[in-house]
Design a binder for these strands. Structure first.
Lengths: 238, 238
DNA sequence: TGTCCATCATACGTCAGACCTTTAGCCTGA
DNA sequence: TCAGGCTAAAGGTCTGACGTATGATGGACA
């Protein structure tokens, strides 16, 4: 009577997940159709489907309908992973387990070295896109969504570091800060200072001057820090 | 005929997820029973269950059986989030999108500042557990699992930084490196050097000497770096 | 001969309803 | 008082049927 504490759908999901992690199933592979899987595992189709939902939610498989449809092992992708991490961090940030100060700390800790790397590694396309961003800000686009535009700048910088893990970790933090503070209309002095800082950072990046870029980013983030804490208390968080 | 590209189970999961993120549902809340949900959303029970599997896999809800069972909004928890992030990174690391060098880079980038913070913030319990770890290594425990023990040390250090995001991000990297290289038996020279380094770092942490701790960690990680690259090619990765 | 469209086959999406299993709490009897 | 069994509640699983999206096929027509 070993009480099977684990529901079948969970056991099956674990089994398939293990196959994927061990690369017995590789990205692009198609799983057997649901009725086949049901037969192989000796369970009903609904149980299989619950297992597949579990895997799909973890971005391990993807399901499509129609004649050539089926369930496929997903080719891993930084963006979707970043998106689910965002959800997780957002939920954490809603609890007492994670506060704004900690997010800012992690962000600075990641972003300053990332800026240094970006100065060294940014491709011409990447420096171009950063220059474009600066230019569009100068032309006064992003009206009323300054903070969102600011985060876009930081995202571009981190991506230019060309280490997928850095983007994977920074972007969810940006996203959470953005959903939390995105509605705030900063003062015009704040906006001008931020844009000026960005221009300095961008110039250093484009000139591949790592020290100057990192120093400018550090100074910029230190300027921002008290504002975030102010935003935070203004929103009535503890 | 507006083709409803989105399956019902997905739409329902999104709807409940939005409720959780907006804190219309808070941790500990119990969702209506499945048959109720089915009624409210106007779908069958199996559709509801698929939606719930989706949410459960994202650590947003949890279901329990029995008389007092049901589906509950989960209280967020760094560890489970770290676990799913591990899976994601492990899959990424199996593709060409992420290589060992990048993982090591991110790890160093996180861990050195984390060590500095740990020196400042570690609680007495945390420095004790680090001291215990060192002591148990000296007594020759962890026979044949030296690398695993090494990662445990680094985990303790990062946790002592007392910023949940740093643990959340570092531990999956440790985990992936561990599952990839955990079977390797390092040379005795390597082991002794690592243990010596750990002792130096631990001493600095216990003495709350941030500069010395960070410098020792930097030196340690730089010592390790070529070994990982060597392990990596030995395992026949590209 | 080549193109277009209707049809078909396939596999996922959804539903209804039944039955099993787990679990907490209550009820009963020693 | 306490042990053991009963019961109700809720999730877990199965069956089988039908709906629906979508690529492929093949014939009609220009």
């Amino acid at each position: 009577m070993t009480t099977d504490r684990l529901p079948a759908y969970r056991a099956i999901a674990d089994s398939i997940r293990a196959d994927i992690l061990a690369r017995r199933l590789v990205p692009g592979d198609r799983l057997p159709v649901e009725t086949d899987l049901a037969g192989r595992f000796g369970v009903g189709r609904s149980t299989i489907r619950e297992a597949l939902r579990d895997l799909a939610s973890q971005n391990l498989v993807e399901t499509t309908r129609g004649a050539t449809g089926g369930t496929f092992v997903v080719v891993p992708n930084t963006e979707t992973l970043a998106r689910s991490l965002s959800v997780g961090i957002e939920v954490l940030a809603g609890s007492t387990d994670l506060n704004v100060a900690e997010m800012l700390e992690a962000r600075e800790l990641l972003e300053i070295p990332a800026t240094r790397l970006a100065a060294v590694r940014a491709t011409p396309e990447q420096t171009d896109s950063i220059a474009d961003h600066i230019e569009s800000r100068r032309r006064g686009e992003a009206e009323g969504r300054e903070l969102v535009a600011n985060w876009n700048f930081h995202t571009l910088v981190v991506r230019a570091a060309n280490n997928p893990l850095l983007g994977l970790m920074s972007e969810p933090i940006f996203h959470v800060l953005q959903t939390r503070f995105g509605r705030i209309r900063p003062s015009s002095g704040f906006r001008q200072r931020v844009e000026a800082d960005h221009r300095v950072i961008a110039a250093a990046l484009i000139g591949h001057d790592a020290d100057r870029a990192a120093a400018a980013m550090l100074e910029h983030l230190e300027y921002l820090r008290p504002f975030y804490k102010e935003f935070d208390t203004r929103l009535g968080r503890t």
